[in-house]
């Protein structure tokens, strides 16, 4: 579909101090247009304080075929999880 606008992935920061989260994607003619479209499509209800857009074609993704090699070795290494500590109440939500 060569006559479609390029795809952009949209990341929104919900509030100050949090990181940007992927919220979806949209089509736009260029990055500035993508920001405007993201404003209309994803922040209509005050969802965000900051918008990032990234051309979807620029994202390099891992291959699902490599899943075993990438993730399975961690299966039997539970000690990599910091789950063996008692968290003091004063520390609050972690």
């Amino acid at each position: 579909m060569s006559n479609e606008w390029p795809l952009y992935e949209v990341f929104i920061r919900g509030q100050h101090g949090l990181s940007h989260r992927h919220v979806g994607s949209l089509h736009a003619t260029d990055a500035a247009h993508a920001i405007q479209n993201a404003r209309d499509v994803y922040t209509r209800r005050k969802e965000g304080v900051s918008i990032w857009v990234v051309p979807a074609a620029e994202i390099t993704a891992s291959s699902p075929d490599d899943k075993g090699a990438l993730y399975d070795p961690a299966d039997d290494k539970v000690y990599r999880h910091p789950s063996f500590f008692d968290i003091p109440d004063d520390a609050g939500a972690m």
Partner: peptide, 11 residues
């Protein structure tokens, strides 16, 4: 003409 324009105009 495009979904994104549709939403923008409605907004």
């Amino acid at each position: 003409p495009a979904l994104e324009e549709d939403i923008a105009l409605a907004n």
